[in-house]
Amino acid sequence: MADLNINLGGLALKNPVMTASGTFGYGFEFEDFVDLSRIGGIIVKGTTIRHREGNPYPRMAETPSGMLNAVGLQNKGVDYFINKIYPDLEKVNTNVIVNVSGSTIDDYVETAEKLAYLSHIPAIELNISCPNVKQGGMAFGTCAGSAEEVVKAVRKAYPKHMMVKLSPNVTDIAEIARAVEFAGADSVSLINTLLGMAVDAKTRKPVLSTVTGGLSGPCVKPVALRMVWQTAKAVNIPVVGLGGIMNATDAIEFFLAGASAIQIGTANFIDPTITMKVIDGINEYLDENGFGSIKDIIGALEIAD
């Protein structure tokens, strides 16, 4: 049994496996399939200052080895979360992290301030990379200046661990990561979905009501790995890797590329027990290859010079 504990910039994880926002509900949806307390961290749905109905149906298109979504941050708002959902989450014995999104900087700040009071929420994940909303979202995360501005503002309002989720829809991920680190982020997570599109040739119409949507699943893994590797080299804060992780081997690849922890997203839809399998699989890999700790393989990619 290898040591799977990770100190993620002050946030203690019992293992480096977390669930990606928007793909694991509030965790309870998976209770029949997994022991929630075994997961390193549960990142719950994108939460905004006010209730959002999200985008109209259809919001999903299956694509080769992946899917496009255009959910558009449907959620009942932060107050509802605090009053109705948080009391149940308090009973979940692991890190529960809230993914925070907004249309304006004030939205982000106000939401983060409210969440700071919740003792059982040790961290937030700042989503500056949602491609499915008209205002804000990804716009903040695709330019170093605005990314820095929003992270700085939230930093002042939120004293606990602040993970910032980066968008892959940029030319230079390292530049954005450095800006976010400079602004006070404790860690960065990447990647959010890649902006994509699906067309129905039969009807000559877009498949999604929003025309474009966010691509996820194994088809994005090579892009995600590349960006995690570039980011890990560029910053000193821990990097949380995600994008297309379907099994333990995929997860190991992200650790080797420099991730200190990983998140599992779309794979939860295919196999609702996948988090348990990935935790067990990482442990087996470490044992089989003679590593005593997960830390031994973080960034251990061997590149010939």
Binding site: G25, E29, F269
Partner: peptide, 22 residues
């Protein structure tokens, strides 16, 4: 029979617009 991704209420892809919202 809306299009579904997860089938267990986690992804919010399958919503129907009802009088009580999505």
């Amino acid at each position: 029979e809306n299009m579904m991704a997860c089938g267990i209420g986690a992804c919010l892809c399958c919503v129907e617009d009802t009088k009580d919202g999505h």
